[in-house]
């Protein structure tokens, strides 16, 4: 799956030995509970969110199944059920529940899920765009001028109202563009899953993999850019 796994994102990488049960020191074979003494084990920091839910690293996820698994694991880890246990077990349960919640929140949302996968596969910190994507350059520039004019205008005047109508239309157009991007992303995600399912280790597959990740990164950063513009716009025109 991750042939050249090169990510280096700091915190998640802190390696922790976790081959032995912290309590009875027996070899760990169970997933989250020691098979011998049944004590809860901390979720390793190496475990990615997909593995955490026992899922393959794919971008199409059955949300109903994910939820069911999340509920099942919440019942296993939630601090409510560790009130009568030792302090160590309470600490582990708290940490595991927090990790589980983050994992669920990340995988539940298709955008966050793709960002997370990109992070795992290509080791990218989120690409934060400060200038508009090339195909949007003209449009954004024009929009900024309209926003400035609107801000300076008397909102009740003819000009003010005209600019507002213009901005509302512009927001709709950008919203549409954002949706198109999300649609495109979905397509790439499907391609990604298909590629992974084939499981080829050829150089062709490797090139295809890198191409898909690059596209994913581009769409995600453009989408974030457009989303921020839409949010700012919404704040301006209310």
């Amino acid at each position: 799956m991750d042939q050249h796994h090169t990510h280096n994102t700091g915190s998640r990488d802190l390696r922790m030995a976790r081959s032995m049960c912290w309590h009875c020191q027996s070899e760990m074979s169970g997933e989250y509970f020691c098979e011998r003494c049944v004590k809860v084990q901390p979720v390793s920091k190496e475990t990615d969110y997909f593995t955490c839910f026992g899922l393959p690293r794919r971008l199409t996820i059955d949300l109903k199944k994910l939820e069911a698994k999340f509920y099942e694991m919440s019942r296993a880890f939630h601090p409510d059920f560790y009130q009568n246990k030792s302090e160590t077990e309470q600490t582990i349960s708290l940490g595991n529940a927090a990790t589980l919640n983050t994992a669920y929140r990340t995988l539940r949302d298709p955008i966050q899920r793709a960002e997370y996968l990109l992070d795992l596969e290509a080791g990218s910190v989120k690409d934060i765009r400060t200038s508009p994507p090339s195909d949007l350059f003209e449009e954004i520039l024009e929009l900024q001028e309209t926003v400035e004019a609107y801000r300076a205008s008397d909102r009740t005047s003819e000009t003010g109202r005209r600019l507002l109508t213009q901005l509302v239309a512009e927001r709709q157009a950008l919203d549409q563009r954002k949706q198109d991007m999300e649609h495109h992303l979905q397509q790439i995600c499907t391609d990604w899953d298909a590629l992974q399912d084939r499981g080829e280790a050829t150089s062709q597959a490797r090139t295809e993999r890198d191409r898909l990740l690059k596209q994913m990164r581009e769409i995600l950063s453009n989408r974030t850019y457009v989303k921020n513009i839409v949010n700012d716009l919404a704040a301006t025109i209310g």
Binding site: S11, P79, L94, G95, A97, A98, T99, N101, T102, R105
Partner: peptide
């Protein structure tokens, strides 16, 4: 509206 327990790490 993040489910608790929740944690965040910062370097």
């Amino acid at each position: 509206n993040t489910t608790i327990p929740a944690s965040a790490k910062e370097l």
